[in-house]
């Protein structure tokens, strides 16, 4: 356990030792902040217009008109960002030959995989922490539903954690970070647009495909509805990716 945490800590540190980590962090906070500012402005205009409208503006509220779209935008940014965070997890170790330190240490492959993944999750937590000011502003200016905020945060974290798990898996298959980046981005995009399958081909298969999509499981959570099914989807997705990565690391020892 101590060794696993040491690997996680080292991975987390690594993000702050490289320009890449800082670039991702600053870029993420900046872009989400910008989105938030634009959306709040837009929301206040819409709300003002709705208040003056004779047809009533009761339906316009912070939860549905601001929090939900903000988090779905954040999810898209994370889709672009996560492959860049996960690409180095194994590829870098193999390229600079530091993998041999891990392989010759009294660690098993599961500890290595778990440690690296936890390190990446740690950085994800830092990223999401960087959006907390938006929640504070909402509380200051309005009256958001804490349940919706919390379930959106949870959903976004689980979604991005799935992105990172896929990214780590692809990183374990190559010693080139760029290749890992491109492949994991392609995979994530594929899994993302599967949700369109339902509307493009409304059949049983379309439904099944939409069910596999990462996006469709966010919908309920973004409305503040926490279904066990959705959480279980993300957790099993992550579990599968970690298992595959573990198998891959084991295979290195035997190839």
């Amino acid at each position: 356990m101590r060794a696993t945490l040491a690997i996680a800590r080292r991975e987390l540190h690594q993000y702050f030792e490289t320009p890449m980590g800082w670039l991702c962090l600053c870029g993420f906070v900046l872009i989400t902040g910008l989105f938030f500012a634009l959306m709040t402005t837009d929301y206040s205009i819409q709300a003002g217009q709705a208040a003056m409208s004779p047809y009533g503006g009761q339906d316009i509220n912070v939860n549905d008109w601001l929090i939900q779209p903000f988090f779905s935008n954040t999810a898209v940014i994370l889709l672009l960002l996560c492959p860049a965070l996960s690409m180095r997890l194994f590829a870098e170790d193999r390229r600079q030959r530091s993998m041999e330190l891990l392989l010759s240490s009294p660690l098993n492959s599961a500890q290595i995989v778990l440690g690296k993944y936890l390190g990446a999750l740690g950085f994800l937590a830092v990223l999401l922490f960087g959006t907390l000011h938006t929640a504070l502003i909402l509380y200051w200016l309005g009256d958001p539903d804490p349940g919706i905020l919390a379930s959106n945060y949870l959903g976004t974290f689980l979604l991005a954690a799935s992105f990172l798990a896929v990214g780590m898996l692809t990183s374990a298959f190559t010693d080139s970070q760029v290749v890992a980046l491109v492949i994991s981005f392609g995979l994530l995009l594929g899994l993302w647009i599967l949700s369109w399958a339902d509307s493009l081909a409304p059949s049983t298969w379309g439904g099944v495909l939409a069910h596999i999509s990462m996006l469709s499981h966010m919908e309920q959570m973004s409305k503040g509805l926490l279904h066990l099914e959705d959480v279980a989807y993300y957790l099993s997705f992550i579990g599968f990716a970690l298992f595959a990565t573990w198998q891959r690391v084991e295979a290195w020892r035997w190839q």
Binding site: R10, Q14, Q96, R97, S98, M99, E100, L101, S104
Partner: peptide, 13 residues
């Protein structure tokens, strides 16, 4: 204790 041909270092530590 194993020292590989290329020392397994993390350059920015």
């Amino acid at each position: 204790g194993y020292l590989p041909e290329v020392p397994p270092l993390y350059p920015n530590m």
